[in-house]
Design a protein around this nucleic acid. Structure first.
Lengths: 125, 125
DNA sequence: GTAACCGGTTACCCCGACGTAACCATCATG
DNA sequence: CATGATGGTTACGTCGGGGTAACCGGTTAC
């Protein structure tokens, strides 16, 4: 039994149950883990600034250069982030959230809401 | 800078950026991983039936009894699922999604939508 | 009594995410 | 020429999620 979903253009997509499962796996793979959403949130919250590698590393608490480089590469591959080499001396590299990357924000928001709500629920129960 | 979120009762909650980060971590911890959402989806899609341990194991493809027992325990601790021992012969145990567990469905849906959309986006690009 | 079904549990293993630390090339400054 | 900043990379180790298989106690059916 296919189910309805809304795509980019607001059109209706049909998806089988297996396709939905695959979609969830994709989402968790691409957005899950310890750092991906933190980085996306940070880039979004500081979208008006120039976010160089070192600046991000200073401001995203606890991340190592190895992890930051890897996560940014993954996000770039998935078109969520752009990498721009600036011709400053010494050379610096700026990362920005793409317009498509903004599509992650609702996912972020739902997870935030559910998590906050869940804390409250457990405290009450 | 606190941000607004909607809680159980539709009231507005304030949360700091760190609280939001913690909330995301919570959500991914409780709903993430390979099996949690699959089980929740299955219980919801078969809410009208009696979902015994073995029945779930047969229908959630690929899960072992060890993982199923662990995941169901976790979900029960988080009040998302109830465990009921039936006095059939031999004894069987039925699991159901709780009313609170239904709050997971929007999270599920957002992940499905984003994943489907992302596949399409990568194919087009 | 033995086979089969139920709902698990236990022991063991593997791999990938993630952490830490050191290192590297390039350029600028003193 | 040494120091510091930039943006990484590499080697190594740890830990936990997850897989596999065997086993268990209780009960019923043959």
């Amino acid at each position: 039994m296919p189910m309805a979903t809304i795509n980019n253009n607001g059109k209706i997509q049909e998806a089988t149950c297996e396709q939905e499962l695959a979609a969830i796996i994709d989402s968790l793979e691409i957005l899950g883990g310890k750092w991906k959403l933190r980085i996306m949130r940070h880039l979004n919250n500081h979208a008006s600034e120039t976010n160089t590698f070192k600046k991000i590393q200073r401001e995203v608490e606890g991340i190592s250069s190895k992890m930051l480089a890897k996560e940014l590469r993954d996000l770039e591959i998935n078109l969520l982030v752009t990498r721009t080499v600036l011709d400053t001396r010494p050379v610096s590299v700026s990362y920005s959230i793409t317009e498509y990357g903004l599509s992650v924000l609702p996912v972020n928001e739902v997870l935030v809401q559910w998590g906050l709500n869940h804390r409250q629920r457990l405290r009450l129960s």
